[in-house]
Amino acid sequence: MNPLQQKFHSTSTALALVGLMLAGPIFVKAEAAMVVMPAGTYVPLLRATKEAARITVAPFLLDECPVTNADFLVFVTVSPKWRRSEVSGLFADSSYLEHWSSDLEPGPHAPPAAPVVQVSWFAARAYARWAGKRLPTTAEWEFAASAGYTRPDGKNDDALKKDLYGWLARPVPAVLPDVATAAPNFFGVRGLQGLVWEWVDDFNTSMVTGESRADTGLDRDLFCGAGSVGAKDTTDYAAFMRLALRSSLKANNTTTSLGFRCARDISLTPVKP
């Protein structure tokens, strides 16, 4: 554990309390556990030549687990416009929460402690705002997911790779497992890899047209500044899968394996040593 991480751990209880105070009188909902993420770096898989090879990630708070059906039920209960029967097609497609039994009843296909899926980016963002949080950025999410179970660099963690590629090879189960069944990674975050895919706030950064023949060299006609993007690390298969998924999504899309978790800025001045 690096010194910075330790420092932030020591303030995490205070931060959580402040978070509860900021959340104010909104709800009785139990505050989801958040993990204090230290500063780090993210190496983009695809990047423009002008882009930095490593992107610095400032310390932030990240939900320990993805948002669950029980969590999301509280949100739709107090937010009628996000119920399945009332949501606007602009913000969520027709399969939004389709596996729930009804507007306010997740039912047998959506156990309370399983991650909520079939939610759009707009819905995930609305939930995060309601919870006094935000969605993580791609850089934050990928940095958190880059850790193995026991070491900060997951690329060398065979146990993680085995679980991850096993998950990628299996079809999506009809009923998703509880979030707590996912083992915590080095940072203490669960389920980033091997549970569900997750929305990130800036999912719409990928300059890929979705037309594979057109993407060998990105189209300068469609994208300003494109034509300068090249793959960084061709060995990270799962990262390519995530990039492809994000590139193909529209913000109102929902799928049976796509959920989300929330992040929050660390706004307090770190304790001076």
């Binding site: 423009a48 002008k50 882009e51 719409n204 950064t205 990928s206 300059m207 994208f223 300003c224 494109a226």
Partner: peptide, 11 residues
């Protein structure tokens, strides 16, 4: 879709 580059410009 858009993304800010290191020089501050946007793709």
């Amino acid at each position: 879709k858009y993304q800010q580059e290191a020089d501050g410009a946007f793709s």
